[in-house]
Amino acid sequence: MRLRPLEKSDLPYIYQQENSRKVMALWFEEPYTSFDELQILYDRHVLDQTERRFVIEDHDDFIGVVELMYIDNLHRNAEIQIIINSEYQGQGYAQASILKGLDYAFKVLNMHKVYLYVDVSNAAAIHIYRKVGFVEEGHLRQHFFAEGAYHDSLVMGILATEFKHQS
């Protein structure tokens, strides 16, 4: 398994993810993106230094995406996001991908802290995040709207000094 930069040729896979209600509910976002809009967004953001988007790939299979977003070079922090395609969930890809994303954030981008938001009801994700070293930093009440309801979210973070993964 490896992470590689998102390429324009990956957009059909991203299109499938971004139009899945189940997938986008995990990111607290609306499942609505046209392919044309996705191409425009790609072109607009490909040179954006406040984000890095990676494809999770295993033997040329598109497993999912890891994103470092809102990269702040002054405060040295970034948000991490991950989506694993449903057919690959439960196979260890999420944990391995998060570790690779953190490794990149801390060792390449020199981030001090990486944080994320996760639905309080997403026990599987919370378990993985805790396992790799994230700690709960806060509980946001009814902070995100998805699937017709407001959801509580945990804010979790990990500091560079807490990150133990060796590449």
Score class of each variant (00 low, 15 high):
92 G>T: 12
72 D>M: 02
106 F>T: 05
37 E>G: 10
34 S>V: 05
105 A>H: 04
17 Q>N: 07
103 D>F: 12
106 F>V: 02
74 L>G: 05
75 H>T: 08
92 G>S: 12
108 V>G: 01
121 S>F: 03
127 H>S: 14
44 R>L: 15
58 D>V: 03
124 A>N: 10
29 E>I: 00
72 D>L: 04
31 P>H: 12
52 R>P: 00
117 Y>I: 01
25 A>M: 11
113 K>S: 15
34 S>K: 05
59 H>R: 15
17 Q>M: 15
12 P>A: 13
22 K>L: 10
85 N>T: 00
60 D>Q: 14
129 Y>V: 02
23 V>N: 08
35 F>E: 05
86 S>D: 13
91 Q>S: 06
45 H>P: 00
110 N>L: 06
101 G>R: 02
40 I>C: 01
92 G>P: 13
96 A>E: 11
45 H>I: 08
123 A>W: 04
29 E>N: 13
11 L>Y: 06
85 N>D: 06
85 N>R: 14
59 H>P: 00
27 W>E: 10
76 R>G: 00
41 L>K: 14
19 N>V: 06
102 L>Q: 11
60 D>K: 13
110 N>R: 13
86 S>C: 04
118 V>C: 03
115 Y>F: 15
11 L>T: 09
48 D>E: 14
26 L>M: 13
30 E>M: 06
25 A>G: 03
72 D>W: 00
25 A>K: 10
66 V>G: 09
28 F>K: 06
125 A>G: 06
112 H>G: 02
23 V>W: 02
55 V>C: 08
48 D>P: 12
123 A>D: 07
25 A>I: 02
117 Y>E: 11
48 D>F: 12
132 V>P: 14
109 L>Y: 07
90 G>S: 05
103 D>T: 07
59 H>T: 09
132 V>H: 03
60 D>M: 01
111 M>S: 07
11 L>D: 00
81 Q>W: 02
103 D>G: 10
71 I>W: 11
85 N>C: 12
32 Y>L: 05
101 G>D: 03
47 L>M: 11
82 I>W: 03
73 N>T: 11
61 D>Q: 15
74 L>A: 11
49 Q>P: 00
39 Q>V: 06
112 H>N: 14
66 V>K: 04
76 R>I: 00
43 D>F: 06
112 H>K: 09
106 F>K: 02
24 M>E: 08
88 Y>E: 03
31 P>A: 05
125 A>V: 09
53 R>F: 09
76 R>C: 08
59 H>K: 15
52 R>A: 02
127 H>T: 13
41 L>D: 09
36 D>Q: 15
67 E>L: 08
42 Y>R: 06
58 D>C: 03
28 F>S: 08
62 F>A: 03
90 G>C: 10
113 K>T: 14
118 V>N: 04
28 F>H: 07
23 V>L: 09
42 Y>W: 11
59 H>N: 15
115 Y>R: 07
31 P>R: 13
90 G>D: 04
115 Y>H: 13
103 D>E: 11
46 V>Y: 09
49 Q>E: 14
101 G>C: 05
33 T>Q: 12
102 L>W: 09
73 N>Q: 12
21 R>C: 08
88 Y>K: 08
32 Y>S: 10
17 Q>I: 15
